[in-house]
Design a protein around this nucleic acid. Structure first.
Lengths: 159, 159
DNA sequence: GTAGCTGCAAACAATTTGCACACCG
DNA sequence: CGGTGTGCAAATTGTTTGCAGCTAC
């Protein structure tokens, strides 16, 4: 297996129609999409694809840090390409970042937080922990929905 | 462990052995536990219980805001009682803090991060979002399990 | 021509639901 | 007693894997 060379920036070696379809669907989407949603959307577009393939590419994208994954309340995985939708990170590099998701409309804004990364590494080290990974999720109400909301359920999860 | 806590203020109307076992198991746990873990632990303790019952009580606890739920990288739901889990928390005002959870043994260490709270509020405000809540999860390997990892990280995404 | 890519079906795992029986109050 | 709580098994749902055929290079 003499690889290690190619695999350019994509992580895959062949350029197939399906791979393109998935990235296109993700790129067009203006928010997080589940694997099944993408699958349906692509098929609706006339192209044939298998659910398995969608999952495989999504996993690959996530692994190479080109897509973000979050789990919704139902435990369903939702994906979105990163680094191409908010001015805050107008660099192009797939740098680690997070999102603020509106509880009302689901609209999300990307935010970068180098401080958080630093904080995570520091406290982890202080505690003697290694191989740290972190998950940061911010939920709130977007400008449009920032009004008096029924004070019923507030999410207060967090470690 | 004896109980004796009045828990009549929510959902459940009967005081069963199983309900107590679940809350005890959760209370003893110093971190997040999956439904199956609690199930196994309770049975290991000699008491009989059904997985279904565990799930039902966990869902009830979460619904009445008496337990937090987070999803780990695999999409598995993890639960923890809220508001009574760290000894350092003797302030009256349940201060917001987080945990580093060992991927190997589940042992967790409490860490405080006022910077993170500040960061969350700031970036949220900058984005025009209000009524912010955040979820921060740190996963790693505790000193005892910190060996050769180099395994590809499972997921380093965040919202 | 060959190794990687696809996709169907089956396997899997986490969680939920149906339903008969047990037990709290 | 009466109805809530329990638990087994079966059903669901999201995701992964086995394997035969297809295709990009």
């Amino acid at each position: 297996m003499s690889e290690g060379t190619a695999r350019a920036s994509t992580g895959r070696q062949r350029n197939t129609r399906q791979a393109g379809a998935i990235e296109s669907a993700l790129a067009e989407a203006d928010g997080f999409r589940t694997a099944h949603e993408l699958f349906t959307r692509i098929r609706a577009g006339g192209q044939h694809i298998g659910l398995t393939t969608v999952y495989r590419h999504l996993a690959l994208l996530a692994e190479t840090d080109r897509a973000d994954v979050v789990h919704n309340a139902d435990g369903e995985a939702q994906y979105r390409l990163c680094g191409m939708h908010e001015p805050t990170d107008a660099g192009g590099t797939a740098e680690h970042h997070h999102h603020i998701v509106c509880r009302q409309c689901g609209r999300s804004v990307q935010v970068s937080g180098p401080e958080v990364e630093a904080w995570a590494d520091r406290v982890a080290e202080q505690a003697g922990y290694t191989d740290i990974t972190h998950t940061v999720e911010l939920f709130g109400l977007c400008p449009e929905h920032s009004r008096r909301t029924s004070t019923s359920r507030r999410q207060r999860a967090g470690a």
